[in-house]
Every structure is written in C-alpha cells, then in structure tokens.
Design a protein around this nucleic acid. Structure first.
Lengths: 350, 350
DNA sequence: TCTACGGTAGAAACCGGTAACTATCGAATG
DNA sequence: CATTCGATAGTTACCGGTTTCTACCGTAGA
C-alpha cells in the first residue's frame, strides 16, 4: 500500500523469492509451489503492486492493443462501428485506442504513424478514404510497415488499396444497398427520383460513387432513364440535404421521390419538403441510407438502407487478429421499409 | 526500408554515431552538429525507423496517454464528451484510450485497473456513477493509487467521491438547468407541470435527483405548489417517456406542460401526446434536457437545456493535466428556447 | 603557452518485465 | 549407493530508449 510504484523486485523481496517467481505467479504458466504462490500474492496485495504494461510489452509479449481511427466520434454510424470494435477487442483481451482525424488525410497519416510507435496489434481505419495517389502510396507504405512488424492495417468500410498491399478489408455493399433501394422506389412506380448527396466533382468519395452506381444500375435494370438534373451533389449532413432539396424545389424540378444519400441528408430533405408544403409520402416519397437510430423515430418512419455497423467493427477486429480468416469480406446491406415511401403519384396530380 | 523493426542502435550504426546521438536528434533537446543530424535523419528515413513508444515510456518519459471510460460509446451525449476529450488530449500531445463498461461497476473497476497498468496520465470516468459503498471505497483506492503514481482520476459529469480523495471533478449544473427550465415554464403561465423521468425509488441516480431538485426549487421560488402526482419516475429512454406520458394521459391527469428529464424521454412524450391528439405547444408545452443534436430537428423544435458536453470533455483533460488549475469545477447549463413551449392555456380550454 | 570553456559525442547504467538457462533438492530407479 | 528425473526457484541477459557522467576538441582568454 505504500508506494504505488512497486516493481516485481519489490514484491519478490517482500515475499522472499526472486523476480522470476513473481512473474511466473502472475502469468501462471509455470509451476510454482502453492505456499510460494500464496506468499507472492499476499506481497502483491500488500504493496498494491500493478504490473507495468510497457515493460511487459517491451520484453516480448505483444501490446494487446487495437487502434481505431475515424473521422469524428460523433458521426451517427461511426459510433456503432466503434462499439463493435470495442466489443470484439475486449472479447479478445485487447485494449482499444481511438483517434480522430476530422477528415484530414495528413492527420490520418500522422495518427497511423503514432500507432506504429505504439506497436498496436491492429490499426483499423474507418470510413471515407481519399483516392489521392500520394496518399494511397503513403498508406500502402504503412500497410507494409505494419505487416513487417507483425501488425495489421484494416480498412473498414473503405475500398482496398491494391492487391499487393498486405491489409485486411471489411466493406459493406454500398452499391447493392443503393441498387435495392432504388429498385424499391422504381417498383413503387416512381419514375422521377432525385438522388441528393451524389458525388461532388473534385473530391471523390468512394461511398458516394458506389451509391450513385447502384442508383444508376437499378434504373438500367428497370429500363428507366434517369434525369441527370435530379442527381444533385451534396455533402452528407443535414444542412446539405436541406439546402439541396430547397434548391431543387425552387428550381421547379419534377420528381416524385427523393433518395437521400444518408439519413442525415434525408432529415434535411424532410424539413425542406415540409417547408414547401409537401407531405411525405403522400406527395413525395423519401428514402435514406444508413438506418441511424433516429430513422425509426422520425415521422413518418424513414425507409432506409441498413448497414451492419457494429458487425463491421467486430469483423474488422476478428479478421485482423486471426489471419487464417479470409482477409477481404463484403458485408451485406438491406433495406428497411418504414413509412416514408409510398406509391408514386403522377406528377400532374401534384 | 528493410526491417520494420529497426532500433536506435541500427540507426546509429548506419549513421556512424552512437545510440545516444540518435536519441538526441529525435528529441531535439540537446545540441547536435548539423552535419551529424543530417546523417542521422537520413539513416532514420532509409531504415524507416519508428520509435518504440513502450521503450520510451519505460525509461522515464511519461506515457502521453489519456484514458476515457464510459458506459456506451453510442450514448447520445457521451459521444460529444468523447469528442471533447479527444480534442483536448490531442491538443496536449496525448493519445486517447477508450473503454466501455456497459454500466457494470465491476467492469469499470477492472478497466481502471488496466489503465493503471498502462500508466495513463489521466483516467477519465464519464457519466452515471454508482452510489454503492463498496464501490466508492474501491474507487477511492484507485484515486489514491493513481495519485501516488503521478496520474489522476477524473470524475466527469458525476459527483465527487469525498473530500480526502485526490481526484479532479468536472460537473455540470444539473439542478440549475432544471431550475431555469422550470422557471421558464412557470413564467409562461404554466401551473400544472408534469416532470417525467424523476427518480425511481431504489436506484438512486444523482442526475435524476438534481434535476428533480431544480424543478422543486423553481416552484418554491415562484410560490407555486407542485402536484406530486405529476412527478413520475421513469427511465431515460424514448420508450420510458412514451409509456409514462401515455399513462398520465390515460389517468386523466391535469397538466399544461411536460418537462421531460431527457430529450430522449421528450421524444417519447411527444409521440404519446400526438397519439392522444394533443398539439405541441398549442395544447401542451414540452421541454427536454440535454439538447441532443436531434432536438433542433424535431417538429416542433424542442425547447431544452443545453449541457456543455464537449466542454465537459475538454475541461476534464485540461484540469487533469495541469494541477495548478482548480480541481473541481461546475460548468453552467442554459436553456435553449425553440418552439415546443408556449404560453399556458387554461385547463378548461382544453 | 597554459587554462578554461562551449560545443559535441560516446559509454554505461537503468527503466521493469520476461525468457532461456542453471541450480538445487528429494524421490525414484537401476 | 550412485544416477536420474521431476518439481521448483534463481541467475542473467535482453527488450529499446533515455539519462547521467565522461571525454574530447578547438579556441578564446589569462
């Protein structure tokens, strides 16, 4: 109880044994006489001894730590991925570091570097991802470096860096979800669907590209042409959706349904539609993407695409820690039907 | 580039200097000739050398790590506290560990123990907190242990453990917020205010107790009696609010306003009111607590009490890392007026 | 010319565990 | 009675930086 900084040797001295014996009592992997063990345990208790994780890490034993890198902890779906990561990490006896990048690729690289210093068992990158070449190259470099050091880079919800890059990839089917939702809208008779939150020219986001791709493919499958004027680039936030929808309405665009690229965008769109006196789903149908917890609580309940957020996190950790598992998986997405999508009303009815 | 496991001595050999010199080049706190520094830096680059954080931590230099312990990463307000912690930790050159306890006091203690092994600079406990005696004692023990080891226990958004316990406490004014909001309602003419989400007898929550206390004190200040039948115990979730409000309505309780103990409760109450054909705020006014991001997106916008979530997190880190600062602060709360509270309509009008 | 000192660089010890190798003792075996 | 083996405990080196403490060199001041 006296020092708070007791070492194995202090404990050893108190118990009248060697440091090795103390170490063995703690690990429990080597036979120690019952009487000795008891004495050691008592000494540990009396000195309030706590093992030094750094010393242990330094001498052989790994770090037992998983690092988790994301844009922003407050992102609606990221929190769930984080939860999955934390759960699985705990289940596998790992601690969990969290770092945020605020979408800054430079900071992301810096953070990964820091994780390399920490000798983390795995470094899990979540979300977004830049397509910039210099960035990809640097990240590939890290993947190789981590690999050589016995660690692992995990790309979670973002596309692979390349075939020769040693990394674990856990994606979800962005394109498939968009395809399913668009098909759902088309099958309800909608022929003029606005996609809000498409790609912004310039800053290529793979998520946006894939969702757009599913949108387009569904139209092709149904043999329905889509109106490029209804594909509006926008950010992924509530305000982006609100502004974009308002602009569309002001411009007098003709549409019977809106497919928002994220639920947050959908919430913004919903507000804009309400302000314009349009009812959902009677006048306009609305669909989102992500199935954030709030989606069910909106009125009307938002029909949206569910992405397996916590499974994403759990899988990332599981695969990274057990290389015998396949190192590239794509998790499925599926639509959740609530009340915000209804049959299309013909445009003239409005 | 070849090993991924290069050490200072490898770098030293390559640069033709001693390990000491390499260390000094990295730290930059000791004069090294320009030419030497250049050679060392080149060697570092060529070997892709990365410092070993554990080795460094072991030899003197602290850990540069802050630990953050909470119930659940997906909690609506916790994410914002986490963000504040992460921001400030980064600003002060610290990495950030996150552990969740799922509300289990035993697991919380285990987690704190693990953080002690990690020699974290500070261990920040967020939210809730148990009032159990054995628990308090164990936690006090940790506070003392961390203190002796030069670290710090931080209680964030939860009450102090006791005067003699070395710890940092960052609270927010639960009682004051409730007082302000209740006053606001009273000043709008409301005389029959229901408080939904008061304390459940048995499981004492300090948060609930304080909010109830503010509610009562405001009534006293205004010289308005409150109806005990309108103070209804409930959990802090959406479903709790919904059920409680429905029960109140079914029972024919007379009230012109509802003060929900959390925004999530308010959302549930709102749904129940709607189902009963009551309009907000025309028929019944509704106020919440927490100002979760969603509060502004409800219709009507929810009038609620803002708690300084990210400031809570930032302050926790700042104080823990600089003991010259006061080690017990109470951050202010204030009401955010939106559209869900209106003047009271007399009960007979309804 | 000798001394002193600023500027640099290195040797060795140390941080706190752990792993590999030794050592000891009593019982079992030949 | 000598040998061997199993159970248990200790010695020592090492993990990879950092930190004294020392040492060297050239030059400026006495």
């Amino acid at each position: 109880m006296e020092s708070g900084r007791a070492t194995v040797r202090d404990v050893a001295a108190r118990a009248g044994v060697s440091a090795t014996t103390v170490s063995r009592v703690i690990k429990g992997d080597y036979p120690v006489a019952q009487a000795t063990r008891t004495r050691v345990l008592r000494a540990i208790r009396e000195l309030d001894y706590v093992l030094n994780a750094h010393a242990r890490a330094l001498s052989g034993a790994g770090t037992k730590m998983v690092a988790f890198v994301l844009d922003d902890v407050t992102g609606p779906s990221f929190a769930y991925v984080a939860k999955g990561v934390e759960q699985q990490a705990t289940a596998e006896g790992r601690l969990c570091m969290v770092c945020t990048t605020h979408g800054d690729p430079a900071r992301e690289l810096a953070v990964v570097e820091a994780m390399r210093e920490q000798r983390a068992d795995a470094v899990i990158l979540v979300g977004g991802g830049t397509l910039d070449d210099a960035y990809r190259e640097r990240m590939s470099h890290f993947a190789h470096a981590l690999d050589k050091a016995g660690s692992r880079l995990v790309l979670c919800g973002r596309p692979p860096l390349g075939d020769d890059v040693p990394s674990t990839v856990v994606e979800y089917d962005n394109e498939g979800g968009a395809y399913a939702m668009t098909s759902h809208l088309l099958s309800q008779g909608h022929r003029h669907i606005a996609l809000i939150g498409a790609d912004h020219p310039g800053q290529a986001s793979t998520t946006k590209i894939d969702r757009l791709r599913g949108f387009v493919r569904a139209h092709e499958s149904f043999g329905v042409p889509y109106d490029p004027a209804l594909i509006v680039p926008a950010g992924f936030g509530r305000a982006d959706g609100h502004a974009a929808a308002r602009r569309l309405i002001t411009l007098g665009a003709r549409f019977t349904a809106v497919f928002a690229a994220t639920d947050m965008v959908a919430i913004g769109v919903l507000a804009a539609l309400r302000e314009a006196g349009l009812r959902v789903p009677e006048d306009v149908s609305l669909a989102g993407y992500d199935d954030i917890p709030l989606a069910a609580d909106l009125s009307p309940g938002l029909t949206t695409v569910r992405i397996p957020t916590d499974e994403l996190g759990r899988t990332a950790v599981r695969l990274a820690l057990d290389r015998r598992q396949p190192q590239h998986v794509v998790l499925g997405t599926h639509i959740v039907v609530r009340d915000s999508v209804g049959p299309a009303r013909t445009l003239s009815e409005r």
